[in-house]
Design a protein around this nucleic acid. Structure first.
Lengths: 234, 234
DNA sequence: CGCGACGTTGAAGCGCCTCAACCACGGTGG
DNA sequence: CCACCGTGGTTGAGGCGCTTCAACGTCGCG
């Protein structure tokens, strides 16, 4: 069944070789050369769960969410993709999830066949892709860790911590975190009710840990408390 | 941040080529040739979170669990590995998780460097590995889906459904499912308290959906109800 | 101005967690 | 052989936190 961390293969060390530390800029160039850039409005679906997986996306700018739809119309947010991320990769048959833009998005659309051909002739690109795949598995495992937390507060703090690295000025102080997604998206990612998400944002603010500048921008006002929330058992 | 389903890349179609449907038997042979088989007792740790990732494991027989340890001593079960599965693959630096045997286990131990060399010379094996990596990502996503379920009952039913495919006689009727892991392991996988797990097993039995033959073996007595529990929104 | 989407706040109820006790089983040692 | 103990599983009672349902506030837009 579930192979979880099996993902944590040892492979990459050499397979990827020394190139795995290069930023993804080369990747973008290589992919853009064989694809076409398309622009999507906020709320647009880039592809849909179950439909034939013929295209791969490279997110050039903007943010998208990766979701699974449940019978009752409820949505589960598996994650968010930022510039430099890939979507629609590794599907066999239909897409395993729906991808929707939560901001205006520019994406490179690539035919799967073209990408495969390119990968065969470019071991370096292949390594980069493999590296990204492993990264994703880690992120999925982190998501699992956050979902297992019994307290809503900690789940939210863990999400904020993940979003931290996507702020354009890393480690500025006081640190501000931009939240491109809605409260509903956060609820669907953390497995909580929207009201619970809202209440816990307010609570963190009352306690002096964060400050809500707008509903889509928070500032960490007490780094020590924030870090300790991440570390403490509960 | 989290790239979740991004994993569902389109890559494999051609990269893996026509060989991706072959069973893993060839993989076992190739790996066994460059590794050594070791036997582990129930409860043994095969490797530990954080320690240097120098080895890769191929599970030959038995079942292991993949766990993350939390500050408070609590464990999170990311998944279970069965014969044919790999562990310790794709690590950069230290292992991302601990792997422990939950039954007696025979595993092929491989030096990461040796595997990398083999992979470079064997594109077919490389494809098989890549395929497994994608599989894992799907499983992790399924795990997330089960954790987001608000009801304990459904989380447990989803786990049982996953374990179904590992019963040696698939689709026998009445269908029996072997549970090699303890209630504690199930609790740590589903994010529930042990008592809740136990209570819901009993409840499913009272309702006539399953029958507990032993605490490690259940039989699905009402397939229709079982399936509907998987499908209904809640 | 009025409408709708989104976010917040309040009140009530249920489900899961916690703490505690009990039971079944296997291993150990007297 | 059986008393003893430790582990794993089950059952009960009580409390807290999240969900649900409902209402209200706010902002952007027609």
């Amino acid at each position: 069944m579930y192979k979880g961390v099996e993902c944590e293969w040892g492979l990459n060390h050499g397979l990827i070789g020394s190139s795995n530390l290069l930023p993804g800029i080369a990747v973008r160039g290589k992919l853009a050369a064989i694809g076409s850039i398309r622009h999507h409005r906020e709320g647009d679906g880039l592809f849909h769960e179950g439909s034939e997986a013929s295209c791969i996306l490279y997110i050039d700018s903007g943010v998208v969410k990766v979701i699974n739809s449940l019978p009752g119309g409820k949505e589960i947010v598996q994650g968010f993709l930022f510039p430099g991320d890939l979507a629609g990769f590794g599907e066999y048959g239909g897409y395993a999830a729906t991808v929707k833009a939560i901001t205006p998005v520019a994406a490179v659309h690539l035919r799967a066949a073209a990408v495969e051909a390119l990968l065969r002739s470019d071991p370096d690109l292949q390594s980069q892709i493999f590296f990204k795949l492993c990264q994703n598995l880690r992120l999925a495992q982190q998501h699992v860790v956050s979902l297992v937390q019994p307290s809503a507060k900690k789940r939210i703090v863990m999400l904020l911590n993940l979003l931290r690295i996507h702020s354009q000025f890393p480690r500025q102080s006081p640190e501000q975190i931009h939240l491109p997604m809605s409260r509903t998206d956060i609820a669907d990612y953390t497995g909580l009710a929207v009201e619970t998400v809202s209440r816990n944002f307010q609570r963190l603010q009352r306690e002096g840990t964060i400050r809500l500048i707008t509903s889509h921008c928070v500032e960490i006002t007490d780094e020590r408390v924030f870090e300790s929330l991440l570390r403490t058992e509960d």
